[in-house]
């Protein structure tokens, strides 16, 4: 098992598929990171997680090493995603804001569940996404679900169908605020996206 895994990394160096011809999108996307760089970073992160999970036991690597290499190897099977970076300050602000919002979301839905009248006016709303595709958009879709009263039900092109517990709430305001915060988290500017 381990031999095949090390085989792969030896045969690796000359192969560079990351430099594919750029498809011109509507916005200048950041350059694609090299697959082997991604593989190394992911292997290191997964290895660190495994080490802590097993209390740094050496014999646990019998299972850990193949699993880490297989997990990191998934970067070769997945479609290439644009590079992204986090702003440390943005991440801290976002984490705090997001904790408060997810508590509000849980309290809101619990209140509705326990209330004898059960105040619900459910429905779908379409929301056009301004964030670029890749990690920022995935982050956006996953966090919509934890905000009060909203659930990301389906992505349709550059829009998301949001299910709302109460369709009278101001969806554009709430999700606009979330988008701006995710843009700050990834050190992006949304204005460039929305203006053309």
């Amino acid at each position: 098992m381990q031999e095949t895994a090390s085989d792969r990394s030896d045969a690796a160096a000359p192969d560079r598929r990351g430099t594919n011809a750029p498809v011109p999108p509507h916005t200048p996307d950041p350059p694609m990171p090299s697959r082997w760089r991604l593989f190394t970073i992911k292997a290191l992160v997964l290895g660190a997680i495994w080490a802590v999970l097993t209390d740094f036991r050496a014999d646990a690597w019998v299972f850990g090493l193949p699993a880490v290499l297989a997990g990191a190897g998934l970067v070769f099977l997945m479609p290439a995603a644009p590079a992204w970076r986090l702003s440390p300050q943005g991440a801290l602000v976002f984490a705090l804001w997001f904790s408060v919002q997810s508590v509000r979301g849980a309290v809101d839905v619990s209140r509705r569940a326990f209330s004898p009248r059960m105040p619900l006016r459910p429905g779908f709303r379409r929301y056009p996404i301004a964030l670029p595709s890749g990690a920022p958009r995935v982050m956006f879709l996953n966090t919509i679900t934890l905000l009060p009263g909203t659930l990301a039900a389906e992505q349709a092109g550059d829009a998301v169908m949001v299910h709302m517990l109460d369709t009278r709430a101001d969806l554009d305001k709430d999700l606009g605020a979330l988008e701006r915060r995710i843009a700050a988290l990834f050190a992006l500017s949304l204005e460039a996206e929305t203006s053309p």
Partner: peptide, 29 residues
Amino acid sequence: VFFIAGTVGLLRFPDIYCRLHALTKADGL
């Protein structure tokens, strides 16, 4: 308490989407 709220929502809410709200949000907290 929040796990119970999520379960009550799962049982009481009228359709699958509302139930997903209860399970993702309340159980998460």
